[in-house]
Design a protein around this nucleic acid. Structure first.
Length: 554
RNA sequence: GCGCCCGUAGCGUAGCUGGAUAACGCACAGCCCUCCGAAGGCUGGGAUCGGGGGUUCGAAUCCCUCCGGGCGCACCA
């Protein structure tokens, strides 16, 4: 079934629903009261809205759904509510409603007056964490997908009125930082002594060569004689700072904004990790076993209980999860994590954590699916050797921000994605990014040609000339924007926005082909230009939420 | 072994809080520029929704089971 659409939220539609419900209880007093919900009919021929109340009544009425639907329609036909509609009809058990063109024309006038201004229908603070990668190397393509998904969700939530707080956890603690420091130290020493051994568990990527060279330029050979106790902390910090700075620069290049880059090390140093563990302990959610401290997450649906303190007293990574999510729950009513495809095993323990912290159902986890790069139909071979990993930077250099953001988000978040590099740069009609952007540019071009004829304010009387099927279809589509965005955030389904943008562009192109905009008839020209303005605004909004540019020419 | 994700037309996917003839793009066949951007539009063919059971008036959607593909299952981070 198509996504349920309740736009436009006309008074008439509500009244009609009440009338139907009243008719139902009059005709079938034994049946439980019905609530009338509208949905988009599968086919345009069925009208603008449909309700299936007759199906739920059929059993109690002991008559076929179609008989019930006919009876309902008959009994409300003469009521006031039904008069606002062009048509109300019972078909195969459904009650189909088609709104009069005047209602759509009025909706267009509203859209053209207000633009696609954000509708503040929601409130409350939401914490959104996404992208978070180890500070041990450059971002790879799969993190780009997480960035796209997270940023679009953030924008959509903000659009609807949420106060969104975006954050990134820097995993700059633990053994991996020692390995990073040792790797950088080895690269640094190799500048003067190529035979200096590289650690077995080190990070071989060539990005450390550049950082080592840079350090060698500023500090010379001074670390050659330093003791391990001296150089290790310095190299840790140096590598971490350089790599995180690169990640931040790339996120910015990708048009993604963060409110907080949270350091894990800092949480340790401030004693917050220990405090987080103590809070759980005081809440009675922990127990000791084999010298380690466990959290009873199985009480809340997790597969197994999780260790937070090891036998030697050191906290585990889960201790960070406990603390960090405690922090996030402290600043937001709702917490959303977007994790990479190799983390789907974490969903259970994080959800359980919400309950253990006394905030059940306040943590949502969304997994961004794996990515396979494809070129000319063949998977791109990737080698783990230096410089051959699939960095996000290389991808952006090749296909640009717009294509990357659109492709990353056009599928539902958890499904695997084959990223077709050839298609992403193709300037052809099978590239969905260009299709949508072309629609926007085409409108801009028409508006340029119209010059001073572009209406400053919509003339509602003139809009009555909009009666062609493609005109009404386009208006219906534009009106959907708000419910689409709400669907995106309610279902954590940002891909709906990409599909919607495509649908808007398609409906515009169909309208454009059928209706000449710059006609000699002043009324029609005004009405169609108004429709162009509203379409341009909706397209620009959809693209903005996707983080994709809306060009006036291309 | 346990768990998660995926299986829908030749390909890529949407639909999954159950509803009408299963939708969209590509590819394929045909048509449309003396006219606002053809990076466009229109028409057509193409699907036992991985298999099998079950629940229901009604199942791509919910339940069970089996089969395929991918990925996780640390007192690593």
């Amino acid at each position: 079934m198509s996504p349920i659409t309740t736009e436009p939220r006309t008074h008439a539609l509500d009244e009609f629903g009440h009338a139907l419900a009243a008719a139902a209880s009059a005709l079938y007093p034994d049946a439980p009261p019905v609530t009338v919900a509208y949905e988009s009919p599968r086919r345009a021929a069925f009208g603008d809205f449909a309700t299936n109340v007759a199906f739920s009544l059929a059993k109690h009425a002991r008559r076929s759904p179609q008989d019930v639907a006919l009876a309902l329609v008959e009994s409300v036909r003469d009521g006031d509510a039904a008069h606002s509609f062009a048509n109300v009809e019972a078909v195969a058990g459904f009650i189909n409603v088609r709104l009069a063109p005047s209602i759509w024309q009025a909706e267009l006038a509203r859209l053209a007056r207000d633009g696609s201004v954000p509708q503040k229908t929601r409130s409350g603070r939401v914490s959104l964490e996404f992208g978070s990668a180890n500070p041990t190397g450059p971002l790879v393509v799969v993190q780009g997908r997480s960035l796209s998904i997270g940023d679009t969700l953030a924008r959509a939530m903000t659009f609807c009125g949420y106060d969104v707080f975006t954050e990134w956890i820097i995993n700059d603690a633990g053994a991996q930082m020692d390995q990073l420091a040792e790797s950088l130290y080895a690269r640094y020493r190799q500048i003067d002594d190529p035979a200096f051994p590289f650690p077995k568990e080190g990070y071989p990527g060539h990005y450390l060569l550049e950082i080592a060279r840079s350090l060698h330029e500023t500090d010379g050979a001074r670390w050659k004689t330093a003791t391990l106790e001296e150089w290790l902390p310095f190299f840790q910090r140096y590598a971490r700072d350089r790599i995180v700075a690169e990640q931040q620069r790339l996120a910015e290049r990708f048009n993604v904004r963060y409110d907080l880059w949270q350091s894990e090390r800092e949480l340790h140093e401030l004693g917050k990790i220990q405090a987080g563990i103590d809070a759980l302990k005081n809440a009675g959610r922990t127990y000791e076993s084999d010298g380690a401290l466990f959290v009873r997450t199985t009480e809340f649906g997790d597969d197994k209980d999780r260790v937070v303190l090891r036998g030697d007293g050191r906290p585990t990574y889960y201790a960070l999860d406990v603390t960090y999510h405690g922090e996030k729950l402290g600043r937001a009513g709702r917490v959303i994590d977007i994790l990479g495809p190799d983390h789907h095993g974490y969903v259970g323990r994080l959800r359980a954590l919400a309950a253990a912290l006394g905030r059940p159902n306040c943590i949502d986890v969304l997994i961004s699916g794996q990515i396979t790069l494809v070129r000319d139909g063949e998977p791109v071979k990737m080698s783990k050797r230096a410089g051959q990993i699939e960095t996000l930077e290389a991808l952006l250099d090749e296909v640009g921000n717009d294509a990357a953001r659109f492709f990353f988000i056009m599928l539902s978040p958890e499904s695997p994605l084959n990223f077709d590099l050839s298609l992403a740069v193709a300037h052809t009609n099978d590239n969905p990014v260009y299709y949508v952007q072309y629609g926007h540019a085409r409108i801009a071009s028409v508006l340029r040609n119209a010059g001073h004829d572009v209406p400053a304010q919509p003339d509602e009387a003139a809009l009555q000339s909009l009666t062609m099927p493609t005109e009404l279809q386009l208006i219906r589509r534009l009106v959907e924007l708000r419910s689409v965005v709400e669907g995106v955030i309610d279902h954590l389904a940002p891909h709906r926005l990409a599909r919607y943008a495509r649908d808007v562009a398609a409906d515009f192109h169909a309208f454009y082909a059928e209706c000449k905009i710059l006609t000699d008839d002043d009324t029609t020209r005004h009405a169609r230009l108004t429709l162009c303005l509203a379409t341009k605004s909706v397209l620009a909004t959809a693209l903005e939420l996707l983080g994709v540019s809306a060009p006036d020419s291309m």
